[in-house]
Nucleic acid binder design. Structure first.
Lengths: 181, 181
DNA sequence: CCATCCATGTAATTCGTTACATGATTAT
DNA sequence: ATAATCATGTAACGAATTACATGGATGG
């Protein structure tokens, strides 16, 4: 998943302290990615070690005072590298959301291939659910228990459909070659 | 989250071995909850220690052979207790899916209050997103970058709407007092 | 001066992931 | 026989959660 890359995007959008990031994470990206402040501080520390980000706080030792972090070129490159690496996990959609925000701050990343692959995966999962639906949930013989089980499956189905419709709408925004009128 | 309760439901639906559960978890509940087999074996071991489940494997020591687990009364009671405890986390919807399957196997649990509370939370989050939408994404001044950011927000919006519509449909199935015609 | 919020951190524990290991059963 | 699959487990590591601690800044 990588919280680090989500943090990089947030920092590119606006240099911030760990505390601010922790609060900001409640909004926007926050429904999809939640992170505690300890988690955020840890990852900020690591990214600083790796030279991806710096705190503006010059020499003063580790006094307990506000540190505003900024993204360094190495961090920017790492974000681009990550954004161009497909995430085949079932939560690939969440990654794509972060990648879209990345594209919004640092320009075209060529995400259309990843998006198409993602759509193919969602379609495949949807087909599986549809098959189960036809096999196990025909309108006859619908006991109350079966109806409840069906609602669970239905949530899976509409989730997949939701991602597919969304991806369909995103596609023209990330395509290098817009479809001819 | 509690994988344990998801496993209890699966075992009530059908007594199984850890291996079978690991494979089964790919389907049905599997999109929402994924668990590796090591995780499943560990949790099965713990639940057996607590007396929630038993392996049918009588005395034979820990020979590496198939153990089919069954839910004991204590496990059943624990599942009911958990199902009747609200989950206020942002992923409360996932819990509700498991609880619906629980209700399907062990009968009415009185979930309507939890469902209504869940809907109120989703509605509140939706209102927040709608406010951001009105404030930051008016149709004028839509740069390409802004359009990308908007698609991220839109995914949040349709997710909330998806949960709300689903919950609306589930409500009559878990209500003790069905609405008068 | 006292409470509250801002801001960062350490420590302990639990959870999840990955790698590895082992043996039993079934099919070729 | 031997390969594949079924089936369970140990060990090590890294990530996440929870509790706790510290101190500066702000407002009443």
């Amino acid at each position: 998943m990588s919280i680090q890359h989500a943090l990089l995007v947030s920092l590119l959008e606006k240099p911030s302290s760990g505390y601010e990031l922790a609060n900001r994470f409640d909004r926007s990206i926050g429904y999809f990615w939640q992170a505690t402040h300890q988690q955020i501080y840890r990852e900020l520390g690591r990214m600083a070690e790796r030279g991806w980000i710096v705190a503006d706080n010059a020499a003063g030792g580790d006094k307990r005072q506000k540190k505003t972090y900024q993204v360094l070129p190495a961090g920017r490159e790492e974000l681009i590298r990550w954004a161009q690496t497909p995430d085949p996990s079932p939560h690939g959609g969440r990654s794509l959301l972060v990648k879209l925000r990345a594209e919004a701050v640092i320009g075209p990343l060529g995400l259309d291939e990843q998006l198409r692959e993602f759509m193919a995966q969602r379609q495949a999962q949807l087909d599986i659910y549809r098959a189960i639906e036809r096999r196990d949930f025909s309108p006859e013989r619908m006991t109350p228990a079966r109806r409840l089980q069906y609602m669970v499956l239905k949530r899976g189905i509409t989730m997949e459909e939701g991602w597919l419709e969304w991806a369909q709408e995103v596609l023209p925004l990330v395509s290098r070659t817009p479809p001819p009128a």
